[in-house]
Nucleic acid binder design. Structure first.
Length: 650
RNA sequence: GCCGAAAUAGCUCAGGGGCAGAGCAACUGAUUCGUAAUCAGUAGGUCCCCGGUUCAAUCCCGGGUUUCGGCUCCA
């Protein structure tokens, strides 16, 4: 029997007879414990099943339930099992695909009842979940076989699985001759693998929800039923995950928006928020901050009209490309919908740039605008503050010469870095490069992409390249932030635009006394105020730093005889620029402290006889820290220090 | 826009073809208290809207609105 030499991750080598399965190799040559815990293996960097054989010298790595990679494999197993369970319970349902996603997996089914697509009810989901876990409990082995593509087509045709046939045919069209099937028990799916050794390895399957989806995300194709689920190797994992979910739910900005009294929605204006006095303080604080930052960074702020006529939208291309998302307004003379409410600031900025003649010395011109914008988003797309119909952006357009692009990109990323640092958001970038339908020659794109790339690399921003994802008029960088519990949000953007100046016939006079086209840079850091606020609420879990907190402190007296002092203190702190309230409800101090603690008040200022005597108050930090009696001046100094906006510069 | 679910007091939610329910919040009174719930009382409702079935609809049926979870799109 020929021998093979297997290299383990620690560099050690083991000899074994060629043709041995990985499972047996692990059991006989490494240890039964690992053999039992193993889920899948990696041979020479390729993920494979444990049933595969070792036929040549190779490096081998074993993944167990301790590895996150194994959980992904197990969730893929779980998707198969859910599909099996569905077909057991609802014969005639066709399967499509069932990938692993960031949080669990889903499987899309084609299910007809009386000839119509029919969703799964919550009761049916429970049944499916139960059946799926029964299949897990039976611990059925997964079996991998390689078959000729033609045989696979026959197999799925025989089962009436037309979606599988379609997928197999697509793969055959790409040149595949054979493909792999995975079976557990009688249930067979066509799948790349790898899978775990048996269904029992999966642990526990939890189904989360079901929803509609289209075959290949195409509205003209079949309506499918998607079942979302997740699995864990043990109950403990599931419970821990449920805890994290509860934590995220507690941070939900829609819930905190209500609890902290920040904003409301009303059916008369779907997707448009009413901001309460507190919410408005928060909104204004961000707005003022961004005004100051941009002003200090060489921007000028302008205001432009809200409604423009059709001519502008035709020129900008919105009339053709974006009309469905615009609110149109009737012209009372013509009776036609000849006006549109602006969904973006760029066209009006371009018009503005067109006023007067510009010298090359005027560039770069950085126009900042926080005007309100409206987009008629699809009804089903609305959600809290993250997806609204009325919002404002911290928008700006930079008009510059081509040789200034690099400097401007640097300048922007530095500003963005300061802003995200100041609120504690980590970020990474996505660089989208030239698409197939690009405008302009390759040399132009080389320079543009090079400038963006160079900036990201010099500033040491982690980034991923998205080849071909840029707009036809220029490449862009999108910035993705991670909040305090690791969720990701796309916020800032820097987009180069080589066509806007052409369309709007914008020019400047160069040092050669000839007219040139400026390049336009579209850029934003918050993205939209609404969305940014939603993210900050969830990021801080409603516990805002003092500079953002709508109310910074609330005064509580121990007895009514301190009320006069309390009012004096409130006035004095307000005079010094702090946002302080006085809780004069007829309740015990303990009760008020409890209420204020729940409402995430940064400071409670307690006033008893001692504090009246000392002409001050005893601040209590959110969370319970008692700072003891302090004078008004000392409190003002403390608040002043803590309400300073972090600079954010590295 | 499409698929599904939900809508009951300010909030969280229970209920159910025949006078509409709780807790918290609010209000009034008493209490004047030293860092997470003082006591008692009062008030609060088009049970989302419009139709239909019924002697009777908040409940059943149809249509609509909004919200939520997805699809799609995006900031």
């Amino acid at each position: 029997m020929a021998q093979v030499s297997i290299t383990l991750p620690d560099g050690s080598k083991k000899e074994a007879e060629a043709g041995i399965s990985i499972a047996d190799f692990v059991k006989n040559h490494i240890g039964p414990g690992l053999a039992k815990a193993a889920v899948f293996a990696r041979i020479n960097g390729q993920d494979v099943d444990l049933s595969r054989t070792l036929d040549a010298d190779a490096s081998l790595q074993i993944f167990t339930s301790k590895n996150p990679e194994a959980l992904e494999v197990a969730r893929h197993d779980a998707a198969h099992i859910v599909a099996d369970a569905v077909q057991q319970l609802f014969p005639g349902t066709q399967v499509t695909i069932g990938p692993v996603i960031e949080e669990g997996f889903y499987y899309d089914f084609y299910r007809l009842k009386d000839g119509k697509p029919s969703p799964f009810t919550p009761e049916e989901l429970e049944q499916i979940e139960k059946r799926a876990n029964e299949i897990v409990a039976r611990d059925v082995p997964f079996k991998r076989t390689e078959v000729l593509a033609a045989d696979a087509v026959k197999l799925f045709e025989g089962k009436g699985e037309k979606f599988k046939v379609e997928i197999v045919n697509d793969i055959v069209a790409k040149g595949a001759k054979t493909l792999t099937l995975y079976a557990h028990g009688d249930w067979i799916d066509f799948c790349l693998g790898p899978h775990g050794p048996s269904t029992g390895k999966i642990g526990v399957i939890k189904l989360l929800s079901s929803s509609g989806a289209y075959w290949r995300a195409d509205q003209t194709r079949e309506q499918l039923q998607r079942i979302y689920g997740i699995s864990f190797f043990d109950k403990k994992g599931l419970e821990a995950w449920q805890k994290v979910r509860e934590e995220a739910a507690k941070r939900d900005h829609r819930r905190l928006g209500r609890e902290l009294d920040l904003f409301h929605f009303h059916p008369v204006a779907p997707g448009s928020a009413f901001w309460t006095p507190r919410g408005t303080v928060l909104y204004q604080a961000l707005s003022d901050w961004m005004r100051r930052l941009t002003r200090e960074d060489g921007y000028v702020e302008i205001k432009t009209p809200l409604i423009f006529n059709k001519q502008l939208w035709m020129k900008s291309g919105h009339w053709d490309k974006y009309q469905d998302n615009m609110f149109l307004v009737k012209d009372s003379d013509s009776g036609e919908l000849d006006f549109g409410v602006k969904p973006m600031n760029c066209p009006s900025h371009h018009i503005y740039f067109g006023f007067g003649k510009h010298s090359y010395r005027d560039l770069p011109m950085r126009l900042h605008t926080q005007d309100v914008l409206h987009r008629n988003e699809a009804a089903g797309a609305l959600g809290g503050l993250t997806r609204v119909r009325q919002f404002a952006q911290d928008d700006a357009h930079i008009y510059c010469r081509e040789d200034q692009i690099s400097d401007e990109v640097f300048r922007f990323v530095k500003l963005l870095d300061r802003v995200y640092n100041a609120v504690g958001l980590k970020y990474e970038a996505k660089l989208s490069t030239r698409p197939a339908n690009k405008l302009g020659d390759d040399a132009l794109w080389d320079r543009a992409e090079g400038a963006l790339k160079n900036c990201l690399e010099t500033m040491k921003v982690a980034y991923e390249v998205k080849p071909g994802d840029g707009a036809f008029y220029g490449p862009k960088i999108d910035f993705v932030v991670s909040d305090s519990i690791g969720r990701k949000w796309q916020l800032g953007t820097m987009q180069l635009d080589y066509i806007a100046a052409e369309r709007f016939d914008l020019s400047y006079v160069g040092d050669d006394n000839k007219e040139h086209r400026p390049v336009v840079l579209h850029r934003a850091i918050f993205g939209s105020f609404e969305r940014f606020i939603a993210i900050l609420i969830e990021h801080f879990a409603g516990n805002f730093p003092l500079w953002l907190s709508p109310v910074q402190a609330t005064i509580v007296t121990i007895a009514d005889r301190q009320v006069d002092h309390a009012r004096k203190l409130q006035q004095e702190l307000a005079r010094r620029g702090f946002r302080v309230e006085f809780d004069d409800r007829g309740l015990s101090m303990q009760k008020k402290i409890r209420d204020l603690e729940i409402s995430k008040m940064p400071y409670v200022l307690v006033i008893g006889d001692r504090e009246v005597e000392a002409n001050g108050a005893a601040p209590r930090r959110h969370g319970g820290e008692d700072l003891k009696t302090m004078s008004i001046d000392a409190i003002a100094e403390l608040f002043g220090k803590e309400s300073r906006i972090p600079d954010g510069s590295a």
